[in-house]
C-alpha cells in the first residue's frame, strides 16, 4: 500500500512539476468551455448535455496524450529494470500510475464545475440527479480510456507508438456506436453493448445501472490486467 501511494504521489508530482499537466488542463478547459458556451445558450435548456457530449470527444486525444508516457518512458529510460529490482509489486506500480492519470482527468472535470455553477444560476427546474450521473459517467469513461492508455504505454518503449495505439483503441470503442448501421443485424446488439457511448448515454440521463457499472469496471479491470501481463511477457521474453 505504501509503495502504491509513493508511486501515485510521485506520478502526480511529475505531472505538475512539468508544464504537461497545465497545458493539458488549459487546452481541455478551453475546448470544453468553447463548446459548452456555443451550445448551452442557444439550446435554452437547463441541463449540461452540451458539456457531456463534448467531453468524451475531448478525451479521445487528451487521455492518450497524458497516459502515453506513464510506462513507456520508464521502459525507454531503463528505470523499469531498476523498479523490477525493488520490492514493488507490478500491480502497485501499474495501478499507482493508472490512478494518477485518472486523478488528472478528475481535476480536468473539476474545472467544468464552473459550467455547473452557471447552470445553477441561469437554469430552472435543474435535474441535479442527471447532472451528478453525467459527471459520474464522464469519470467512468475517462477511467476506461486511462486504463487503455496505460495498457498502450506498457506495450512499447516509444511514447508516440503508445499514443497511436491508445488513440486507435479508444477511437474503436467510441465509434462502435456510430457504426451500427453498417453492422449485420445479428451483431447490432453485441456491438451496441460493447460501445462506450451506449453505456455513457444510459448513465448520463440520470440512471445508475449495475450493467453499465459492470461494463466500465470490466473494461478497466481487463486493460489493467493486460498491462500487468505485458510486464510478465517482457520478463519471459
Amino acid at each position: 500500500m505504501n509503495n502504491f501511494k509513493t508511486i501515485y504521489l510521485r506520478e502526480i508530482k511529475s505531472y505538475f512539476n512539468t508544464p504537461m499537466a497545465y497545458i493539458f488542463l488549459v487546452v481541455f478547459a478551453l475546448v470544453n468551455s468553447y463548446f459548452f458556451t456555443l451550445w448551452f445558450f442557444p439550446s435554452n435548456q437547463s441541463d449540461m448535455r452540451s458539456l457531456f457530449s463534448i467531453v468524451p470527444l475531448a478525451y479521445l486525444f487528451f487521455i492518450p496524450a497524458i497516459s502515453m508516457s506513464l510506462i513507456a518512458r520508464e521502459i525507454n529510460s531503463g528505470t523499469i529494470e531498476l523498479v523490477s529490482t525493488l520490492p514493488i509489486k507490478d500491480v502497485e506500480f501499474v495501478v499507482g500510475k493508472y490512478l494518477s492519470s485518472v486523478t488528472l482527468i478528475a481535476i480536468g472535470l473539476g474545472l467544468t464545475l464552473v459550467h455547473f455553477f452557471t447552470l445553477v444560476n441561469v437554469g430552472s427546474n435543474i435535474d441535479y440527479g442527471a447532472v451528478f450521473c453525467g459527471y459520474l459517467g464522464l469519470l467512468l469513461v475517462g477511467s476506461v480510456y486511462c486504463a487503455i492508455g496505460v495498457f498502450a504505454s506498457s506495450i512499447s518503449d516509444n511514447q508516440v507508438v503508445a499514443f497511436i495505439v491508445s488513440v486507435f483503441v479508444v477511437l474503436a470503442f467510441f465509434l462502435m456506436d456510430k457504426m451500427l448501421i453498417f453492422m449485420p443485424q445479428g451483431l447490432v446488439g453485441i456491438m451496441e453493448y460493447i460501445s462506450i457511448d451506449y453505456h455513457l448515454s444510459n448513465i448520463s440521463r440520470g440512471v445508475i445501472d449495475t450493467r453499465n457499472i459492470i461494463y466500465f469496471g470490466s473494461l478497466i479491470g481487463f486493460f489493467i490486467f493486460l498491462s500487468l501481463r505485458t510486464f510478465d511477457l517482457r520478463r519471459w521474453s
Partner: peptide
C-alpha cells in the same frame, strides 16, 4: 456568463 465560462476555468489553471 459566456466570457466567465470561457475564461474562468483557464484562469484557475494558470
Amino acid at each position: 456568463w459566456k466570457w466567465m465560462n470561457m475564461l474562468l476555468p483557464m484562469m484557475l489553471v494558470i
